[in-house]
């Protein structure tokens, strides 16, 4: 890494983590396409009811996440395979999982 890269990493330390993931692209792809993708798909089913509009019948927010789950999971398996450096994809997956968890906690807290 150059001096410029090092200074960027000091400002954005998560870049060091992504660089570490890019150093082992196969492992990163397996983790992203495997457990991370599955967890993200499951959590999307749990979190989207708290974010989607309810629709005219009052059930779209409950039904559409279940309808989209298989397609979403399949796409999440394929996406990490595409880029040469999958570290960013893994970071995006982890970030999305955290957002979904927040949505679930806020949604459950609101309904209690």
């Amino acid at each position: 890494m150059t001096e410029q890269d090092n200074s960027r990493v000091d400002v954005f330390p998560h870049l060091r983590l992504i660089a570490k993931w890019n150093a082992h692209p196969r492992r990163t792809r397996w983790i992203s396409a495997g457990p991370l993708g599955f967890v993200m798909a499951i959590l999307s089913m749990a979190s989207l009811p708290h974010g989607l509009p309810v629709g005219a019948g009052g059930v779209d927010h409950l039904v559409m996440p279940v309808v989209l789950f298989p397609l979403l999971w399949a796409v999440l398996i394929v996406v990490p395979v595409l880029p040469e450096r999958p570290g960013g994809v893994q970071a995006a997956y982890i970030g999305t999982i955290l957002v979904e968890l927040v949505l679930i906690v806020l949604g459950c807290g609101g309904s209690l």
Binding site: G55, A56, G57, G58, V59, D60, L62, V63, M64, V67
Partner: peptide
Amino acid sequence: VGHEPSVGS
């Protein structure tokens, strides 16, 4: 499903 016809139903 639902009370009224919708995209989901």
